[in-house]
Amino acid sequence: MARTVLFSDEAVAKAINEKFEPVWVSVRPVPTVTIDFGNGKKITRTLHGNVASYVLNADGSIIDILPGLYEPQQYISRLDQLWWVHHYKPMTRDPVAFLADYHQKQMVAIKTSGTSLEVRPNADLTKALIEINTKSILKASSAISKVTKARMEGSLEHPDFNEPKALASWRRVHEDTDINENQRRAQVHEMLAVRPNAHPEDVTKKLYREVLHADIDDPYMGLGPTLFDDYPFREDVPAELRTSHAVSNSH
C-alpha cells in the first residue's frame, strides 16, 4: 500500500529525493492470508502491514517518527516540517534538550488540542530572532486541521482501485492519517521526549507493540488468542500457545 499510495507518487518521490537520503528496511516478513477455495481459485492478501517513517540525523539518532500510512499531501507536509526540525537542531544551544522539548510540546499540543504544532519554516532568517528554540519555531496549526477536514470531505468511500492514484483519495487512508496524527504521534512524542537521542533499534519494538499494535517479537503478532481460544481441536493449537489456550478456556 505504501509503495502505491506514497512512493509511486511523483510529488512524494520528488520531495523525498530532493530533501532526504532515503532507505527502507524490513522489520519482519509480512504476514499473508491465502484462501484456497478448492476449485483452483486462490486469493492472497497481506495482513497487518504496518509502517513507520523515521527522520534521522547523520549519526543515526532519531529526529521524529511518522507512524503508519499517510495520504500523500499530509506525508509531504509532515516530512517537510521534520526537515526543518533537522535544519534547526544544530543551531540550538543544546540540541538534545531542544529535541526533548520539541517532543514534549508536541505531545501536550496533541493531547490538549487534538493537533500537533506546526514547525515554522525559515525561522532562522527572521531578523528579529536571537535564539532558535522550540518557542521560536513552533506555532499552532489551525490551518492544517482545516485542510485535513476539507480533504476528508473530498475522500472517497469506494475509489477506483484500478487507478493507483485513486487510492490516495480512499477514505480509509485519510482516516488512518488522522489517527496517526491525532493519536499515534502523541504516543511517539511521549516516547521520544524521554529518549531524545534514541536510535531506531532502541524504540522500534516498542513502537510496533504499543503504537502500531503489531508485536514484531510475537510469531502470531498478538493474534494467538483470537485464532485459538475458541478453536475446539487442541491438537492443531501450536505447542507454545497450548498453555494459554487451556488457561483461557478454563475461565
Binding site: E21, S26, P31, H86
Partner: peptide, 19 residues
C-alpha cells in the same frame, strides 16, 4: 550532503508485490 535520512520501516519488502 547534510540532508536528514528518511528511514522507512515496514513488514515485508518494499520490492515485493505483496508487502
Amino acid at each position: 550532503s547534510g540532508k536528514p535520512v528518511l528511514l522507512f520501516q515496514m513488514m515485508g519488502r518494499l520490492d515485493d508485490r505483496f508487502c
